[in-house]
C-alpha cells in the first residue's frame, strides 16, 4: 500500500534514523534492517526522527521493542524525536513515554546523548 523509507546520518557516535511514510507490518522489516545494520556495526546510540512519518501501526512499534534490550545492554539507547501529535498519541496510548525518552527535536535528543556521555567521563 503505502511507501516507507529510512535514511541514516552519523553525528559523532550517534546515529540518526529518519523515518518517512507509513510504518506498518509490511514496511517494518525495512526499519528492522536499519537497526540490525547499526547494531552489527556496534552503533548503539540512536536517535529516531519521526518528522516525516505519517503513520505507525502496532507492528511498527514492535520494531523499537525488538532492539531496545540489546541496545541498552550495550550502554546505548533509542531516543525518539520530532513526532507529530497523531504519532505521539499512538506511542502515548501504549505507554511508550514510560519506556523511551521522547523529545520535541532531534537536537534535544542528540544533546541528551552528549550530556550523558560527559557524565560517564
Amino acid at each position: 500500500m503505502a511507501e516507507f523509507s529510512t535514511s541514516t546520518k552519523e553525528v559523532g557516535e550517534i546515529s540518526i534514523i529518519y523515518l518517512k511514510g507509513y510504518l506498518d507490518a509490511h514496511t517494518a522489516p525495512t526499519l528492522e534492517n536499519t537497526f540490525s545494520n547499526l547494531i552489527e556495526k556496534g552503533k548503539y546510540r540512536t536517535v529516531v526522527n519521526f518528522n516525516e512519518l505519517n503513520y505507525i501501526s502496532s507492528a511498527g512499534l514492535g520494531v523499537f521493542m525488538a532492539y531496545i534490550e540489546k541496545i541498552r545492554e550495550n550502554n546505548g539507547d533509542i531516543k525518539l524525536s520530532s513526532m507529530s501529535e497523531k504519532v505521539f498519541n499512538i506511542f502515548d496510548l501504549l505507554g511508550f513515554p514510560l519506556l523511551y525518552e521522547i523529545y520535541q527535536t532531534e537536537e534535544e535528543a542528540v544533546n541528551k546523548f552528549i550530556e550523558s556521555k560527559s557524565f560517564e567521563k
Binding site: S58, G62, V63, M65, A66, E69, L94
Partner: peptide, 8 residues
Amino acid sequence: LDRKSFVS
C-alpha cells in the same frame, strides 16, 4: 510473546 509483539 517475542520481543517485538505486544498486546494492548
